[in-house]
Simulated scan of single mutants.
Amino acid sequence: MSLRTVISPSRYVQGAGAIRRLGEYLAPIGARPVVVADDLVWGMVGHDVETSLKSAGLPVRRETFRGLPSAAEVDRIAGVLQETGADVAVAVGGGSAIDTVKAAGHLAGIRWANCPTVASTDAPCSALSVIYTENGEFEEYRFFPRNPDLVLVDSQVVANAPVELLAAGVGDALATWLEARATAQSNSTTMAGGLPTVTGTALAKLSWEVLWDNALQAVDAVRDSQVTPAVEKVIEANTLLSGLGFESGGLAAAHAVHNGLTAVAATHGLAHGQKVNIGSIAQLVLEGAPSGEVRDFVEFTTRVGLPTTLTEVGLRSDDHDSLRAVADAATAEGETIHAMPFEVHSRDVASALASIERFATRVRREAKLPDPVPYLAHA
């Protein structure tokens, strides 16, 4: 008999100014940390991280992250961790740095901690990494025997980041409930390695509810770099609730479509959550969800600032070759789309994606929202 399971990080800390206490929370985990961050992130928070580590009596050693969670970058960081004798790897940055450090920490046989500077993905809390090819295409999921020992989020740092990144996190997190309810229906295995629990599914639904109540207000606050109760709730929903919900609740079509979208070069400049949002709409279409439910989702996520049409992710509904490439990758053997409570074939995904354009554009016009702008116009 398959077992049900919930997994989670050992400690989650969130609040304005939290980064200044990073050393305090790291000290019980390890005495020889190596911090991994890219130059942009280090320029913004490096001083606070250094001061925090020194005040806790910890050495300051930073390794530069090169921007892509590829197998080669994971191996390089793992080598640095081993050469320096580090006993805890600390990711400071976004989902790419975090996924790289989790995988590298595992290879090096040491503990790891995450300090996300954005709330753009649910990567910080999980015991898995998404690995990409050097060209930016999805390659594999890597699963680890434990979750991070610490996840520390400074709400002010998140509020200082571009608002598009918070919006992308909302896109990633909204998919959590759509996928968890599908996984619960099919009683499929989750990313935690067991059947879904009531707890995992409930946390996924709570993430959805918090976002529908707070996301628009939070996005407006972050446009002015303000931390409000709505911002705190959305950061928690994007990071902790969605992290627990996707991992112990299950993934389904939305993230599989995201992975498929990475097979098309035109989408590579988009944030993870932006592509996931297209996957969520595709999943609703595949489910035959009531028109009102799809309409509400398109309108809400457009207002949040997420793409809801193919145009906005660099595709066209009449580009059959690209849509077929996306659909083939999304339905590859082992993909999470097979956790849907019915069979899904490549042609089904291609049709669902092609159908989004007209419907979403009409919804936007009826709601007096802007027409889609081609993705390249943003680049």
Rank of each mutant, 00 (worst) to 15 (best):
I7N: 04
G15A: 02
G23A: 06
E24G: 00
A27F: 06
I29Q: 08
A31I: 01
V34G: 01
V36F: 11
D39A: 15
S52H: 10
K54R: 15
A56R: 03
R61L: 13
E63P: 00
T64M: 06
L68K: 14
V74T: 14
R76I: 06
E83W: 00
A89P: 08
A91F: 09
H106S: 12
N114P: 00
N114A: 15
S120M: 12
I131R: 04
E140D: 09
Y141W: 08
F144H: 14
R146H: 14
N147D: 10
P148V: 05
D149H: 14
L150V: 09
L166D: 06
L166V: 15
L174K: 00
E179M: 10
A180L: 05
A180P: 07
R181Y: 04
S188H: 06
A192V: 11
A192L: 09
A192Q: 07
L195Y: 10
L203D: 05
L206K: 09
L206S: 10
W208N: 12
W208G: 00
W208F: 15
E209C: 02
V210E: 10
L211Y: 08
N214R: 13
A215C: 03
Q226C: 04
L240F: 14
L241E: 02
G245H: 07
A254M: 10
A256F: 06
H258Q: 13
A263D: 11
T267P: 05
L270I: 00
A271Q: 13
Q274H: 11
A282D: 05
G288S: 03
S291Y: 02
E293M: 11
E299C: 04
E299V: 14
F300Y: 13
T302E: 07
L310P: 10
T311C: 12
S322C: 07
L323M: 09
T331V: 13
I337M: 09
H338Q: 07
A339R: 15
V349M: 08
V349C: 08
L353F: 08
L353D: 07
T361H: 03
R362K: 12
L369C: 09
V373H: 02
H378R: 15
